[in-house]
Design a protein around this nucleic acid. Structure first.
Lengths: 153, 153
DNA sequence: GAGCATTTGACAACAAGTTGTCAATGACGA
DNA sequence: TCGTCATTGACAACTTGTTGTCAAATGCTC
């Protein structure tokens, strides 16, 4: 066998994992700065996005699953957003405790404002990269995540 | 111009960003579980790794820069690791305040134990993926991070 | 319908990261 | 050498995420 043992596939994947950790931090701080004067944070923005992209009002548990976070983490953010007047609860006909979450008018305009900031930012960052490369990376990462989630069960 | 506006490059990059957020969380919990009975957490493990991979004992600030975290975050972990007896401080000849951090014997064996867990885990996870794809993804993410860091300055 | 497992929200403890501020230290130029 | 500026550790407040536990609500099986 040819000498190729100095860098196993596992080690290459480990390098990728460490890169994800670093990039995650950078993205969060970049996001925070991008929308600081809208009065949002990356976490709240993400929750607003999950609500926005749902076809209908959904429960906190549903939102948490769609974001890959725990119920409790999302619940706390949602409660804060409700205090801030960006989301509102709506009675759930099929579950008395699990209320449905929806954007208020203020929530919609805050999300729209964040979106207006994000679009040129994303376009600028995407420059110099090939669309196919970005898409391939996303597919790869989603597959890795799928494997991790399968292991969790 | 052909109709290709429904999914701009920026939107594709945004999808990649959201995937990174999800994967980051999964990786952290997977890491925590992997080494829970070694008495480590993902964060402490990472700090031990940064110390381990440095050629010589380094300061907390240096470690933080190499990990892409803030000084304060790393400082707190290092202080806890010192209490736990996994790292030790050493006088820095060129700076009286900024002590150098090194692994103790216990720190070395804890890191080695974590490494023994991590290797088969990484190899198993890397299975089904092409080495070139993993490497390409890492390069792409590193480039994106480089752009973000350049913007910060 | 009764009983039991699952889902859900509430609450709490904790881990890990950020920002901001301060004083001590060291580096560098006038 | 002196003054100024950047770096560093210490400390604190805060955000965001985790896990664990509890009771309420629902659904499913017998």
């Amino acid at each position: 066998m040819i000498d190729d043992e100095h860098s196993s596939d596992g080690e290459i994947l480990t390098g990728l994992v460490l890169e994800i950790f670093r990039l995650n931090g950078r993205l969060l701080t970049a996001g925070d700065r991008l929308i600081a004067d809208v009065g949002l944070t990356s976490a709240r923005w993400q929750v607003l996005g999950a609500i926005h992209y749902a076809d209908e009002p959904q429960t906190v548990s549903w939102l948490a699953r769609s974001m890959g976070l725990t119920r409790q983490a999302v619940q706390r953010i949602v409660n804060e957003l409700e205090v801030a007047g960006l989301v509102a609860f709506k009675a759930n006909p099929s579950h008395r405790r699990a209320q449905l979450v929806m954007l208020t008018r203020n929530g919609q305009s805050a999300y729209a404002a964040a979106d207006r900031r994000q679009k040129p930012w994303a376009n600028a960052l995407a420059k110099n990269f090939k669309r196919a490369d970005l898409a391939a990376a996303q597919v790869l990462l989603a597959k890795i995540r799928g494997k991790l989630e399968a292991d969790t069960e």
